[in-house]
């Protein structure tokens, strides 16, 4: 579990993180999104007790980041923005070094390192020097390092940024598995498709403040309005829009399809279909038009830059 309250960090006059309040339950993945310099890395560093908060408080795995830094770091697995591997070392020696720091017993340390390397497709490279690893392999090894001590909390900065699609899939599957295993996970990423796929909750941070926080559906509804439905009929839709005007708000009309929005799709959609059948219109499909996290993100960040949505979301977050 991760819990923060009014977490703030100043570097001199510059406020990098400003009153961050979040709660991430075990078995939950929170995607921390935001433009470069928004305060994501500083937040992760505070949650790892690497940086001391200027104000506010945070607990990670039940330990206070200010007063129990050693315990916090012992319970957190961190994938840092820069993987920072020791390139002259061999992979197993490298993991052995970190395993010793976490006081993992000798036999278990080696077994777990080999298991994790096999799991991430590095089984053939256990004895290679890290300087010979490709960028993606280095990233996977850094992830293995983060998982080596079996931490209940994971803070992953761009977990798949340098990986090929196959490796990225492997890592995403591993994250899903870790979530099922009741780990608390925060990922910071610019890959919005990945964030949408992996996360249970999304927090968008800008200028050190959370400007939007919730599930994707909540954010999508809040920012992009009610779900947009698309209805396709056989033949032409002449006059249909008018017949539905008391049920839904039609936003566009084409030859054989209309688009409408409704705040209660579960109640309204069956009524729409029933009415159309009553009118003798053959319904071919009725589906929700997919909205992407990218739309939500851009709406929030651009709105924040223009000073449009920040106030609204700050109130909601509070």
């Amino acid at each position: 579990m991760i819990e923060t309250e009014g977490l703030t960090k100043d570097f001199g006059d510059f406020r990098a993180v400003d009153g961050l309040t979040i709660k991430v339950e075990p078995g939950t993945v929170l995607a921390l999104l935001g433009p470069n310099g928004a305060g994501k890395t500083t937040t992760v560093r505070m949650l790892t007790s690497i940086l001391r908060p200027t104000a506010g408080r945070a607990t990670v795995a039940g330990y206070d980041v200010t007063t129990q830094p050693v315990e916090v770091r012992a319970h957190v697995g961190v994938l840092t923005e820069h993987h920072g591997l020791y390139l002259r070392m061999r992979a197993l020696d490298y993991l052995d070094f970190f395993g010793r720091i976490y006081h993992i017993p000798d036999e278990l340390r080696r077994r777990r390192a080999v298991e994790l390397m096999h799991r991430f497709g590095l089984g053939d490279s256990v004895n290679r020097r890290l300087g010979e690893y490709s960028k993606g392999m280095r990233q996977k090894l850094a992830l293995v390092r983060a998982l080596l001590h079996d931490p209940p909390v994971l803070l992953l900065d761009e977990p798949t940024s340098a990986m090929d699609p196959g490796s990225a899939r492997q890592v995403r599957d591993a994250i899903q598995e870790l979530r099922r295993d009741e780990r608390t996970i925060i990922i910071t990423t610019h890959n919005l498709v990945e964030a949408q796929e992996l996360s249970d909750e999304i927090a968008i941070i800008s200028h050190g403040r959370i400007i939007a926080h919730g599930t994707f559906r909540e954010l999508s509804e809040r920012l992009l309005g009610p779900p947009l439905m698309e209805l396709r009929v056989r033949g032409q839709v002449n006059g249909v829009a008018q017949e539905l005007s008391d049920l839904v708000e039609v936003v566009s009309e084409d030859t054989d399809r209309i688009r409408y929005v409704t705040v209660e799709p579960e109640r309204v959609n069956p009524l729409v279909i029933r009415r159309l059948i009553g009118l003798g219109v053959d319904v071919v499909t009725l589906s929700e038009v997919p909205q992407s996290l990218e739309d939500v993100y851009l709406r929030v960040v651009e709105g924040d830059e223009k000073g449009e949505v920040a106030g609204e979301f700050e109130r909601e977050v509070a």
Partner: peptide, 11 residues
Amino acid sequence: RRSLEPLLATP
């Protein structure tokens, strides 16, 4: 070389 941060993230 940015290899310090992983070390700083240990206990």
